[in-house]
Design a protein around this nucleic acid. Structure first.
Length: 586
RNA sequence: CGGGGCGUGGCGCAGCCUGGUAGCGCAACUGCUUUGGGAGCAGUGGGUCGUAGGUUCAAAUCCUAUCGCCCCGACCA
């Protein structure tokens, strides 16, 4: 009886004969890939590079992406969002209106059409959706509205790297909510937050939700969804009390510093030949690093500024940016710093300076310490705050890390690394005000729409799944994202019995709705095993003359590498059950 | 944008310093053998050496320009 192909609800085939598939696997690592997900996606035949940061999705890569998209769609719809599709190409006019034409920088890919009009390829769609909303949403009766799309974006990154983790062209789910009031907006935000948590649960990924930097927009807040992986680009802090934040954002209150020195100690100028950096200065002066006050000069939106921080602490650039009014602070070059202060790099200090001084709270608790003397090879000992130098404004500027006190409960924080795969953001009225997107309230008054925006990196989640789940043989797909769930490996394809048993299993599995690859290639067993491990099918069934003689087939789980023998007669049903367990709660 | 590196059959690389007929492994194709962890033997095909200019009797090799790709950095005084 001929095997009959089956298809799922979305029109995707439930089965594939590998001999007719397009899955070009590589034995060796590609030369131009660095991170593991990039290497494995290429080696396993999921993607191929076309240009820097631009990839073709091969059939298996596309299947994993499509599965991710399905999971996203389902939860979006459950949460009441509605799918649409906005144009990728957008008129520059809209971006000029929102102010981002000048603000967004070179990441925004711009070009002109034949009439010399400005266009861009969308890196995100706030402008387009806001334009749509202001045209179509008239009254409070139309609200709330929550719209999303899954679409290819383009961001001309300075340095694309890490394959699908940070491409220039990438697929993103972006959603936007519109509400009449703050309560409604908070409700929309909450619904998206919960939907996101379900999405990453449904992907069977280990993830965390953290408070994220909300930028310079007052009153707004945001959360990031991070897939936990050693190789993640973001540092995260956690507390037993439930507090979790991106290091960029994590508050640091009253962390311990050295107590103030004896107030009777007089200011003392000491030579510090060529000791520019905190560690060498501390060693030379025989003082702890925490006794030194580090001074750094930045160019901010309001001119140059001197930033003070305890010597054993690092400045958190995002906190500094927010403290200085939202423009990206730029560290002055040694030449600029010397020109400005007269002191060479490493000897700049806050005494008798006319540059505005801001400082981290920790400096206040130190009460003073070692400072640069403002001239070459000289520092001051026992400099005291308010006696010898003053600070204009105080901020929380230090980076929180392992062991620092939790801002909620004071217990010690721990750190992990993660990959940002989702971000929910309460926008407020930033775009609706800039673009005059208003609705008529019940009282007839016009008010700006209150917006939220919500993004998921679809391709990045697929890559993050690999960063989190792999071994030296290849990918270990979580069931929900695997391109196919089961691989059938007939070891002797020319043996009639093996072939017949494999065909029957192939048909039975498809009939049971299990996504199955039949590796019907006339290849040696070793090659089939290696490919199956590399591609990372969660379940593998080996059909051989040997085991078939006993009426059995061999099952191997990719995650635990556990091997069990199954009776041929109920193998398909067992696989179906294991598949369903692997899919978890839906 | 700054620094470093690399472009040589489909993939991974050697050859370049010291100019002289373009090589290796894998892959592909044919045949025989083999068949539970990327097989063995024999044979075959496939390369404007990124591109353009220059030097030279002669350029993959030296020089210049250019394009592409990768890595590091672009906050830690």
């Amino acid at each position: 009886m001929a095997t009959e192909m089956r298809f799922d609800f979305h029109g995707q085939p439930l089965g594939l004969r590998l001999s007719r598939g397009f899955v070009p696997t590589l034995k060796e690592d590609p030369a131009d890939a660095e991170v593991v997900s990039h290497k494995l996606l290429i080696r396993a035949g999921f993607i191929r590079k076309l240009a820097a940061g631009i990839y073709s999705m091969l059939p298996f890569g596309l299947r994993s992406m499509r599965k991710m998209e399905r999971i996203v769609r389902l939860e979006m719809h459950r949460a009441g969002a509605i799918e649409l599709l906005l144009p990728a190409v957008q008129p520059g006019e809209l971006w000029k209106e929102s102010g981002r034409w000048d603000f967004y920088g070179k990441e925004l890919l711009r070009f002109k059409d034949r009439h010399d009009r400005d266009y861009i390829i969308g890196p995100t769609h706030e402008e387009v959706i806001t334009d749509l909303a202001r045209r179509e949403i008239r009254s409070w009766r139309d609200l709330p509205v929550n719209l999303f799309q899954i679409q290819t974006k383009f961001r001309d990154e300075i340095r694309p790297r890490f394959g699908l983790m940070r491409g220039r062209e990438f697929v993103m789910k972006d959603g936007y909510s519109f509400d009449a009031d703050e309560d409604g907006a908070d409700k929309s935000y909450r619904a998206m937050y919960e939907a996101y948590a379900k999405i990453f649960q449904n992907c069977a990924l280990k993830f965390a939700t953290v408070e994220a930097d909300s930028g310079a927009i007052g009153g707004s807040y945001s959360h990031e969804f991070m897939v936990l992986a050693e190789t993640g680009e973001d540092g995260l802090v956690f507390c037993d009390c439930g507090y979790a934040a991106n290091q960029e954002k994590a508050e640091l209150k009253d962390y311990p510093t050295l107590p103030p020195e004896d107030a009777s100690l007089a200011l003392e100028k000491v030579p510090t030949p060529n000791r520019r950096h905190v560690p060498e200065l501390a060693e030379f002066l025989k003082v702890p690093e925490g006794r030194i006050i580090k001074a750094m000069l930045f160019e901010s939106g309001e001119g140059p500024v001197m930033v003070l921080i305890p010597g054993d602490r690092e400045i958190n650039p995002v906190k500094l940016k927010n403290a200085l009014g939202g423009t990206e602070p730029r560290l002055l070059t040694p030449e600029e710093a010397e020109k400005l202060t007269g002191a060479p790099m490493g000897f700049v200090g806050p005494m008798n300076t006319n540059i505005p001084v801001v400082a981290d709270h920790g400096v206040k608790r130190m009460g003073g310490g070692v400072i640069g003397a403002g001239e070459l090879d000289q520092h001051y000992l026992h400099a005291r705050l308010d006696r010898d130098f003053t600070v204009g404004r105080w901020f929380d500027l230090a980076q929180a890390g392992d062991g620092d006190p939790c801002p909620r409960c004071g217990k010690a924080l721990s750190t992990k690394r993660g990959i940002e795969v989702g971000h929910v953001f309460k926008l407020g009225v930033k775009y609706s005000t800039a673009m005059n997107a208003v609705y008529a309230g019940a009282d007839g008054q016009e008010r700006p729409l209150i917006m939220g925006c919500y993004g998921i990196g679809v391709g990045r989640t697929v890559a993050a799944a690999i960063e989190q789940n792999h071994d030296r043989d290849g990918i270990i797909w979580p069931m929900p994202l695997a391109p196919y769930e089961v691989a059938l490996l007939p070891l002797q394809v020319q043996n009639a019995e093996v072939a017949a048993a494999s065909e029957k299993l192939f048909q039975d599995l498809m009939d049971l709705g299990v996504e199955t690859v039949l590796d019907d290639r006339d290849e040696r067993p070793g090659m089939k095993f290696k490919d199956a491990d590399l591609i990372g099918y969660p379940l593998r069934l080996t059909i051989s003359e040997k085991s078939l003689a006993a009426g059995q087939v061999e099952l191997k789980r990719r995650d635990t590498r556990e091997v069990t023998m199954l009776n041929l007669a109920d193998a398909a049903a067992t696989l179906r059950r294991l598949r369903d367990e692997g899919l978890g709660a839906k």
